[in-house]
Every structure is written in C-alpha cells, then in structure tokens.
Simulated assay, not measured.
Amino acid sequence: MTFFPVRLLSSLVAVLLCSACIGGTSDEARFYLLSSEQLAGTGATTSAAITQQVELGPIHLAQYLDRPQIVTRTSDNRIALAEFDRWAGRLSDEISRLLVQQLSRHQPGLLVRPAPWRLAAAPDVQLELWINQFEGVPGGAARLQARYLLRRPRRTAQQGQLHYQRQITGPDYPQLVATQAELIADLAADLARLLGKEP
C-alpha cells in the first residue's frame, strides 16, 4: 500500500515538469526577408524595349552562409549564428529575388530571370555569382564580398570581385537585414553597369 502513493506522486511530478517545458516562455523565432521597400530610389520602373536577356545564377553561397540562421561576425575568425533570427527562405533565393528587382530598376532594358532559364530563346548573357561574405554586427558594419562571371555567346567571359561595406544604423537584427539589402542594391548597381557595357 505504501508504493502506490509514491508512484502516483512521481507521475504527477513528471506531468508537471513536461507541462512547464511545453508552456515555457522561450523566445519565438523571428523571420526576415531582403526587402526593396526601404531602398532609396526604389519604385515602379518605366517600360522599355528589351535590350538584353539575362540569366541570373546560379548564386553560390559560402558554406557558412548557407543556413537558416542569420550570421554575424564576432571577430576576424569567429562567427555567431542567431538562434531566434532567421531567413524566411533560402538566402540564395532571397539574394536572387532582390537582384532581379534591382537589376531591372538600374537597367530597364534588361529582362532578368533566375536560373535555370526557362524561356524558348537563349539568354544573351549568363551572370553567375559567388557570395563569399555576407554578414555584419548589429550596431557595427555589414560587409558583402562577391565574385561574378559574365558569359556571352562567342565572347570572352568577364570575371571580377566586388567588395562593399555599410554602417548599420541600429543595434538589432532588423537594421542589420535592412543594411544587407542595401549592400545587395549596391552590388546590383555595379552589375547593371557591367551588363550595360559591351565586352
């Protein structure tokens, strides 16, 4: 008779502990998009005759960036992964989406489509990117390093590297992500100029 109350008490304690774990007040994850809404000069583009069809991609991310968590840098050789601040989609897709918008804004004659190319006519140029650095520190600076490769049929391929840095205006992740969107817009402006030049 003495064992039943002990077992009952143990079961009640276990249930209470599980309830505390499930109903705890842990932080909820926050999800972010690279948005063009806050970018200066962003707006509806005027219609223009198509001068070039551009296949954008593939976009290759450095392995440390290819993850849901937003990456911040804590020192030259150390990074941190945000436990509750994450990208809403794959980062490569977010970068591609914003680049398509911004390239078309800077060069209205460009028809830009993400890889793989699905139109009947072959593209005039393929733009492949490697994103080697894309992080920052809230309250500090955000940095972007990218390598590009431009291929045109029967032309010599063009390649190069581009580096950008911007100060983050606030101490939290929304300001970091907004600044990272500005870095992508900077990259798009330079890539649009490259696409507008004859090789």
Rank of each mutant, 00 (worst) to 15 (best):
residue 40 A to G: 10
residue 114 P to C: 02
residue 191 L to I: 01
residue 93 D to N: 11
residue 9 L to S: 11
residue 96 S to H: 06
residue 76 D to S: 14
residue 31 F to D: 06
residue 1 M to R: 15
residue 5 P to V: 04
residue 174 P to F: 03
residue 68 P to L: 06
residue 87 W to C: 04
residue 106 H to N: 13
residue 26 S to H: 14
residue 146 A to T: 07
residue 150 L to S: 03
residue 183 L to T: 07
residue 83 E to T: 15
residue 103 L to K: 06
residue 198 E to Y: 13
residue 33 L to T: 03
residue 66 D to P: 05
residue 12 L to D: 01
residue 87 W to I: 00
residue 15 V to D: 06
residue 182 E to S: 12
residue 114 P to D: 03
residue 42 T to A: 14
residue 94 E to V: 01
residue 36 S to I: 02
residue 149 L to K: 13
residue 46 T to P: 08
residue 41 G to C: 02
residue 158 Q to R: 15
residue 73 R to I: 06
residue 102 Q to S: 11
residue 93 D to M: 11
residue 58 P to R: 05
residue 197 K to T: 15
residue 167 Q to H: 15
residue 175 Q to I: 01
residue 76 D to E: 15
residue 166 R to Q: 13
residue 131 I to N: 00
residue 182 E to P: 07
residue 178 A to C: 04
residue 198 E to G: 12
residue 130 W to I: 02
residue 191 L to A: 07
residue 150 L to D: 00
residue 132 N to R: 15
residue 109 G to C: 03
residue 85 D to R: 10
residue 17 L to G: 12
residue 125 V to I: 04
residue 191 L to H: 05
residue 152 R to E: 08
residue 5 P to I: 03
residue 174 P to A: 06
residue 60 H to N: 14
residue 186 D to W: 08
residue 183 L to A: 04
residue 34 L to K: 05
residue 5 P to A: 10
residue 189 A to T: 11
residue 159 Q to A: 12
residue 191 L to D: 07
residue 136 G to M: 03
residue 197 K to Y: 14
residue 63 Q to W: 12
residue 161 Q to N: 12
residue 16 L to W: 15
residue 10 S to R: 13
residue 178 A to R: 09
residue 184 I to W: 02
residue 68 P to I: 00
residue 39 L to H: 03
residue 190 D to M: 08
residue 3 F to D: 12
residue 15 V to S: 10
residue 122 A to M: 05
residue 182 E to T: 08
residue 71 V to P: 00
residue 122 A to I: 06
residue 5 P to R: 11
residue 34 L to A: 02
residue 124 D to I: 03
residue 147 R to S: 11
residue 67 R to N: 05
residue 64 Y to T: 05
residue 181 A to E: 05
residue 152 R to F: 04
residue 7 R to K: 13
residue 131 I to S: 01
residue 186 D to Y: 06
